[in-house]
Amino acid sequence: MEKVAVVVQDGAEPFGLGAMCEVWAEPYHPEDDNPVFDFVVATPRPGRVRGASGYDLHVDHDLTAAADADLVCVTPKRDYLAPSPEVVELVRAAHDRGAHVFAHCTAAFVLGEAGLLDGRRCTTHWRHVEELRERHPEALVDPDVLYVQDGSIVTGAGSAAGLDAALHLMRQQFGARTAAAAARRMVVPPHRDGGQAQFIARAVPDCDAETLGPLLTWMNENLAEDLSVDTLARRSHLSSRTFARRFREETGTTPHAWVTRQRLQGAEELLELTDHSVDWIAAEVGFGNAAALRHHFTRARGVSPQQYRRTFAGVRSA
């Protein structure tokens, strides 16, 4: 992935554009050794592009500037049900030539108009999930996730979930260490657990919403320990049933899923940064043996630990 094009239309939402710039338009930082992309912002008609928040944009490039991009990002706009036909055609052509296509928030409707969501898992902002289903009944809309990748098509939920989706792509293309460095620069977590449902359920958290914070920190620092529900419940002085319920309320996921995700992230970093055997890494992050690590890693990442190491081995020397 060398060239990234971000597409804006009249009524452009500023956060969507800003989020993509934060991830893909950064100059080189020696302390991070971050990748630098050929980055361009394009629009159907260059010049003044109306904004959605009291100020407009000036964009120099038309859509031909995005015609050879490895990643085409479509940002949301105020009137999301009326996408530019030129943009619809651009994303269809980008997909046909094998580029990645990423739609942030309600920009998923652009992909729907292009026919790219038929038979694919996808998401959008929770307020517009039912509308996306109604307009594109062949799309497999998941209302509970922060982002979805189905093949080369990526869709993200509202606002900050665009950063989650972009960091996912960064992690996939350049490894966990590079994505973590980008997240650290933006002062956001490299991976958020849970999905939209945890934010929809209660806009204002209950008074005990952060009670498990210290435990989560301890769990992440002790991945090789017994982290079963019964053990964690005893450590929290709760019954197993109460602990499991509270864990889901506060994190949006189950203890098992949370622990597995942290162990996978730990394994990624060790595969990148060390020459230790897969058996050693499996024990270090709590999977116990190489077979268990291979099972979970391949299921979650689509490649084996050895394949992942070969892909990102160069990161160790950075």
Rank of each mutant, 00 (worst) to 15 (best):
D206V: 09
P189Y: 08
G162R: 02
Y147I: 05
E225M: 14
R177T: 14
V148C: 13
L216R: 13
G162Y: 00
Q198H: 11
D208H: 13
A165W: 02
P214K: 08
I200Y: 10
L215D: 06
T155G: 06
A157C: 01
C207M: 09
A209D: 15
G151S: 15
V204S: 11
M170G: 08
E221S: 14
A165H: 06
A181E: 00
L167T: 04
G195C: 01
L227W: 02
R192A: 06
L169N: 09
N222Y: 07
D144C: 03
N220D: 13
V145A: 12
M219E: 07
L146V: 04
P205I: 09
E210Y: 04
I200T: 14
R234T: 04
P205Y: 04
G195Y: 01
Q172A: 13
V154M: 08
G158K: 08
S159G: 09
V204L: 15
L169W: 11
D164P: 05
W218I: 11
V148D: 05
F199K: 02
T178H: 10
T155K: 00
G156T: 03
A203Y: 14
T217V: 15
S228I: 12
P190Y: 12
A182H: 10
S228N: 06
L167Y: 10
A160L: 11
L216A: 01
E221A: 12
L146Y: 10
D150G: 04
G158P: 07
A161Q: 02
A166K: 06
A233H: 03
R185C: 01
D144I: 01
L227G: 00
Q196M: 14
F199G: 03
G162A: 08
A197C: 03
N222C: 09
A161F: 06
T178E: 01
R192D: 08
A203E: 15
E221C: 07
G194Y: 02
M186I: 07
H168V: 05
V148I: 14
T231P: 10
V187A: 02
R234S: 14
V229M: 06
V148K: 07
F174P: 04
L227K: 12
L163A: 05
A209P: 02
I200C: 03
T178I: 09
L146H: 04
D144P: 05
Q173C: 02
A203R: 14
A209W: 10
V188T: 03
R171G: 08
L223N: 10
T178D: 03
R234K: 12
E221W: 07
A183F: 00
L216V: 02
S159V: 14
R171K: 05
Q149P: 10
A180H: 12
L146C: 13
A166Y: 13
R171D: 10
L146W: 01
R184Y: 00
R185F: 01
P214S: 09
H191Y: 13
A209R: 03
V229Q: 09
D150H: 12
A233Q: 11
S236V: 11
H191D: 08
